[in-house]
């Protein structure tokens, strides 16, 4: 029984309550860094790490925070883990850190993370919060990879830097859609993807819960 609840907590983040397609949380990084699959993957993992660590801390000490200052306390804890991720990326993957730029510190105000702390981690025991954070983190990462792969495939003919569609002039016939790499392409692709997922599930996406 206990395993069943944990399983359900983790699984709901993958599709039923997917942060990007169902809850429309964390839109800024979703749109901003998804012009190549590898950036989508790194942003997803960075967010998942911060979400997991802050969920563990906050659900462990959930009875300690005074109600009035809980949001401020959550934000400071989240900001601490974001600083750790930022320094880690700067030290080990300087190229990725440079490409993601100020969007790494913006994880602090990613409403996915604050939303999960407020809705789940501050009310549930540690093991359930870990399951929830893992599910949401993986769901977010998968959504980012999906979006980024489509944009990279159409925008430069490759996925994760591996050329799939041969370009014109390099023995192939594919002309890259430059628009996919521009900001406009992010909006159009995500809009179409959410539209398609609504069409097949017959369920309307909820309005963004964070603002």
């Amino acid at each position: 029984m206990k395993e069943y609840i944990l399983f359900k907590d983790a699984l709901k983040g993958l599709w039923k309550e997917n942060p990007v397609f169902r809850q429309l949380l964390g839109m800024c990084p979703t749109l901003a860094v998804t012009n190549a699959a590898v950036y989508g993957l790194s942003m997803g993992l960075a967010t998942a790490f911060v979400l997991l660590c802050s969920s563990i801390i906050i659900s462990t000490f959930r009875r300690v925070f005074p109600h009035e200052v809980r949001i401020a306390s959550f934000v400071v804890i989240i900001a601490t883990f974001v600083t750790i991720v930022d320094l880690f990326l700067k030290g080990n993957f300087p190229a990725i850190s440079k490409a993601l730029g100020p969007y790494i510190p913006l994880i602090v105000v990613n409403c996915l993370i604050l939303g999960r702390q407020e809705m789940f981690a501050s009310k549930n025991p540690v093991h359930r919060s870990v399951a929830d954070a893992l599910g949401m983190g993986v769901g977010f990462t998968l959504a980012l990879i999906a979006l980024a792969s489509i944009r990279e495939l159409l925008g430069s003919g490759s996925i994760f830097g591996i050329q799939i569609l041969a370009l014109v002039g390099k023995g192939g016939g594919f002309r890259p859609w430059i628009i996919m790499l521009l900001p406009a392409g992010a909006f159009l692709t995500l809009g179409t993807m959410i539209g398609i997922s609504n069409f097949f599930t017959g369920k309307m996406a909820n309005r963004s819960a964070c603002h």
Binding site: N198, M204, A205
Partner: peptide, 11 residues
Amino acid sequence: EALKGAPIGLL
């Protein structure tokens, strides 16, 4: 129907 709300906003 499927585009109502967020998707049409994004488009």
